[in-house]
Design a protein around this nucleic acid. Structure first.
Lengths: 255, 255
DNA sequence: CGCCTTATTGAACCCCATCAATATCTGTGG
DNA sequence: CCACAGATATTGATGGGGTTCAATAAGGCG
């Protein structure tokens, strides 16, 4: 019997990506991900080679970008929005196993097909290029691998961070931890608690948060209500959140 | 309120590694991890350079190899035994966030200090070398990075695999999944279910299994008893397991 | 406004943690 | 070899956190 039956309709639940590419970017110069992202490892000529086959795409929220265990044809750099990485069990139970933001790289070298499903959590803009074009550069340029490894490394740390939460934390602690995480990476200064406050929009629906935390939407909702009743957070609409007492939120996150 | 209070005595619970190095291995030739491990990326002269500062160590079960958030001084290759990667919450609740076997590499480049605790689950033999010696080679040789990235990549997949289990699976499914995992990597042929049977020794105690699965020892024990009562597994002692019906075990693992 | 999706709130149940007791294993010394 | 002791594992009884089922409320978009 299933512990958590937040099932998903595997095929009909989300739109399928229809490639409506917009404009070829031979102008990586103006790219926001140019310096922080993996492309930063490339010099101008390499960048030009890659950019000729690169395409900017805008992807509607909820669109499936890559299906679990399907072949990987393209890599991409996230320019805007939040991307969910998911795994599903045979009976449809789903777990979000990662969240990625700009300027993260999508796609792992050496892997012919994806071990996770990839889906736009919000409207997402990506810069996509054929796997082969990237792999060619990849084999030549070692600094590029440095960057990819660095990100993979960070994702691994994140994954383990959430394994800790999934395995040991209570529902209250999970939700507090999640809000803290969003607060931190939407406003990195919030971490060093200048004012003890933070404001942001949740990038995920209650259902997605529940998936991420291994809970149900009802439980997530109840925990958020509790935090509101304790005057630790305020809500404007269901997505916009003001954290009034960051230390108290941290207190409830269980470390 | 703690959901799972399988606390650990943070400092006294496990022995601390006392370096009693045995013999310098300028003979990587006979090393079991030579070809599959990361060292396989090195040519003979590079290998010789590295081996001069490499030391083989035998580490007793339960010994702490690296403490969480402490500085990393040495990297290592696992030659024998199972190594636990752990995270702890401030109140002592602990989660195993990874398990590593030979010929895995211990230590992530770019990270000055460890994000996980590292502990010998069984008696462990490692080949250790100073971080600086390795990093030097690392900067020169790109294939080495390939191998490290490949492993990091695999670890990330594993972490996500277990996030799925931690977040969505019931206790019964978690235990079945765990037994399947052990069965698979102690006998890779078991996967393709020739006989539908498998035999192995559990590398972890009930308490460690519980930590790994985000459960308690009691629950793990009960689930194992159930599998025994269903004649899916047999026990000789508490560690030695014979899986009689691999398909049935898979059935109960939830995919 | 009216429809549909998303979120909140309520009540009952159940899985698993918790507390507690017994059993089994392991190794150590007489 | 057996007796003993400490650790590890199993089994039992109880309770609570979170799921489940159900209904209401609030957004979002035509």
């Amino acid at each position: 019997m299933a512990l958590n039956t937040h099932y998903r309709d595997l095929n009909h639940g989300s739109k399928r990506l229809d490639i409506h590419n917009s404009n070829v970017t031979n102008l990586c110069q103006s790219c926001e991900a140019r310096h922080n992202g993996v492309c930063g490892a490339l010099d101008d000529s390499e960048l030009f080679r890659l950019s000729r086959s690169a395409v900017n795409k805008t992807i509607a929220a909820g669109t499936q970008i890559q299906r679990e265990s399907e072949a990987i044809g393209t890599y991409a750099v996230i320019l805007r929005g939040i991307v969910k990485l998911t795994r599903v069990l045979a009976d449809g139970r789903q777990q979000i196993v990662g969240l990625q933001h700009p300027p993260d790289f999508l796609g792992k070298p050496f892997e012919p097909n994806s071990k996770v499903g990839v889906e736009a959590a919000s409207e997402v803009k990506i810069c996509a290029f054929p796997k082969v074009a990237f792999d060619r550069l990849y084999a030549e340029k070692s600094d590029l691998e440095h960057r990819v490894l660095k990100q993979t490394s960070r994702e691994l740390d994140d994954a383990r961070e959430w394994m800790l939460a999934l395995g040991q934390k209570s529902a209250a602690e999970k939700v507090a931890s999640f809000l803290l995480m969003i607060a931190k990476d939407s406003d990195p200064e919030a971490e060093t608690g200048s004012t003890g406050q933070a404001t942001f929009d949740l990038p995920l629906s209650r259902a997605d948060i529940a998936d991420f935390l291994g809970l149900t939407t009802e439980t997530v909702s109840r925990q958020i209500t509790r935090l509101r009743e304790a005057a630790i957070i305020e809500l404007k609409g269901s997505r916009h959140i003001v954290v009034r007492d960051l230390p108290a939120l941290f207190e409830r996150s269980g470390g």
